[in-house]
Design a protein around this nucleic acid. Sequence first.
DNA 1: TTATCTATATTCTATTATAGAATATTATAC
DNA 2: GTATAATATTCTATAATAGAATATAGATAA
Lengths: 171, 171
Amino acid sequence: MKGLSDQEFVVLGIIMDGATHGYEICQSELNHIWHIPISQTYALLKRLEQGKMVTFRLARQGHRPQKKVYALTDEGRRTFLAWVGQPAEKIRDIRTEFLSKLFLIRKLRLDMGGSLIAAQIKICKERKKRINGNATAGTGTFEDMVSLYRHTMIDATIRWLERCLVYEREG
Amino acid sequence: MKGLSDQEFVVLGIIMDGATHGYEICQSELNHIWHIPISQTYALLKRLEQGKMVTFRLARQGHRPQKKVYALTDEGRRTFLAWVGQPAEKIRDIRTEFLSKLFLIRKLRLDMGGSLIAAQIKICKERKKRINGNATAGTGTFEDMVSLYRHTMIDATIRWLERCLVYEREG
DNA sequence: TTATCTATATTCTATTATAGAATATTATAC
DNA sequence: GTATAATATTCTATAATAGAATATAGATAA
C-alpha cells in the first residue's frame, strides 16, 4: 500500500472509535463535517482490507442482511496514529483534514489536540510569510484580489486556530 | 450533455479568451489559481467536443506535432455566458469557481464583475444567517469549534468580497 | 559531435472520487 | 395490508487526477 488517502485514514479512525461496518461508519458525526458518500466508504474499506489495514469477518445477525465486521490490524492502528497528529500541509485542507483529525483526537481521547493545533498554527504562519504581495497596497488588479483573498483567509484561519487552542487548554 | 462541470466552463472561457488548443489552455494564468492537470484538460476538451460546445480542426504547423485548433460553438458561447455571471452556491467553491469567473469576466471585459461580486455577497450573507449556533458563547466543544470556524470564514469572505466590490467600482 | 535538456503537443493507462441505482430484509406507521 | 423508513451492501457509470508514453525540434553543455 503506497500511502493512504485522508479519507482512508478517517475510516480507520472511525473504526478505532468503535464502528464495526460500512453502514455504521457512514453514520459517524464526522459525516456532517466531511461527507464521504456511502459507495465511497465501501470502496475505501475494500482498499484498506487489501492493504491489510483492517480485517473483517462476516456476521449474520437475526434476520437482517449480514454485515462485514471490521477491526484494525496493528499496522492499521500504527498508521492511523502517525497520521492523526500531523497538521494539514495545505490551508485548503483545514476544513476536511484538520477538523477530522481534531474530531478523532477528541473522540479517542488521545491527548494530542493541543500539539496538533499548535503545529497547524505554525504551518499557517509559515505559509503566510511565503505569500508574496501586500494585502493592503493593491490598485485593484485581479492579482491584488487573489493576494488579498489569501491573506484574509489565512489570517482568519490563524485567529480561529488560536481560539481553538484556548478552548483546548481550558476545557 | 447533462450539465457541464465548472472545469469544463473554465475551459470554454479560456478558449473564448483566445486559446486555441489543449497545451495553450494549460498555460493560462488561471492555472495559478485553479490548477487543472494537463491530462484532465484534454479529457475536458474531448467531452466538450462530444457535447458540441466546441469544434476543432487539425492543424499541421511547420514540423511541430500537429494540434487540434478548437473554437466555441454558438451553444458553447451561450452556455459559458450563462454560467459566468452566476455566483458560487457553496462557500468552499469561492476560491475556484468564483475566482475563475471573476478572472474570466475581467479578461473578456464582460462588464459583469460588479453584479457577480454583489450576488456573491448576497449568497454569503444568506448562508451566514442559516448557520446555527453562536460564534462567541461556546464552551469549547468540538461543535463550538466547527461553528466558530464557519462564522470566521464566512465573515472573512464577506469582508474580502466587499473590498473587491470597491476595487471593481473604482478601477 | 553527441548527448541531454527544454519546450511544444497529445494520448494512454491506472487509480481515486462520486453519484445513483439495484438488491435484500425487517420494523413501523398509516 | 400497504407504504416507507431503516438496515446493510454491491454494482455500474462517470469524473478527477497522477503519471507515463509518444513525437518533434531547438538549445545547450560536455
